[in-house]
């Protein structure tokens, strides 16, 4: 176990917890389009986000032991566990993003630190700093084509790929965990801007926001 100072960022006190989009729902609303909707938008709020840094071989062993999925070594790769609830994404040759269900991030960090011992690595809990916006529906790709500079054609962006790129002038992570689902990982401070951009860009498809 390393001597790094860690702490659980989730409090068990009665402080109300708000997602990064709580403000946006109050100010911009959450349109419902019903059955005519061609794009559905949903925030997957409060998930656990960890950034792993270090050598691929050392981290891979630890991650496979603790999480049961192997670290993607290929650039732009995104892997998930069988349930699809836990994922690891390649961000750079020595950096990965791990997303796990709410509340799992601190136990996971602790287990990884125990397993990694004195190896050369870093783990940062960034759960409070970013959020996941999920985009589904038949017009999802059309919507992305208006907003990201990256080529989202299925030939160029197959399932299991994720990139850090520019979405509406903001730095975001765009990933495709399944055939019909796209995810944007956005900074908390950009969340309102991105949400309002999405509402505007998706208005023509009859956007439906699930809360």
């Amino acid at each position: 176990m390393s001597n790094a100072a860690t702490f659980d960022t989730r409090t068990d006190t009665a402080i109300p917890v708000e997602s990064p989009l709580a403000f946006s729902y109050r100010h911009s609303g959450a349109p419902r389009a019903g059955s005519s909707s061609r794009v559905q938008l949903r925030e997957r709020a409060m998930l656990g986000h960890l950034i792993l840094r270090g050598g691929a071989i050392v981290l891979d062993e630890a991650v496979r032991d603790v999480l049961g999925i192997s670290l993607p070594g290929k650039p732009q790769a995104l892997v998930q566990d069988a349930s699809g609830e836990r994922s690891i994404q390649w961000l750079s040759p020595d950096e990965w993003l791990v997303i796990v269900p709410s509340g799992e991030e601190f136990p996971l960090e602790t287990q990884l630190r125990e397993r990694l011992g004195d190896s050369h690595y870093a783990i940062s809990d960034v759960s409070g700093g970013q959020t996941v916006l999920e985009i589904t529906g038949e017009a999802a790709r059309e919507l992305l084509m208006k907003a990201v500079i990256y080529d989202v054609h299925p030939r160029h962006f197959p399932v299991g790929k994720g990139v850090t790129t520019v979405f509406a002038k903001a730095t975001t992570i765009l990933r495709r965990p399944s055939e019909e689902r796209w995810e944007l990982v956005v900074r908390r401070s950009f969340a309102d801007y991105c949400y309002r951009w999405l509402l505007d860009a998706a208005a023509e498809y009859g956007v439906n926001v699930e809360q």
Partner: peptide, 9 residues
């Protein structure tokens, strides 16, 4: 490092 062509931006 990314192993692909990316937008200049």
């Amino acid at each position: 490092y990314c192993g692909e062509h990316r937008e200049e931006e």
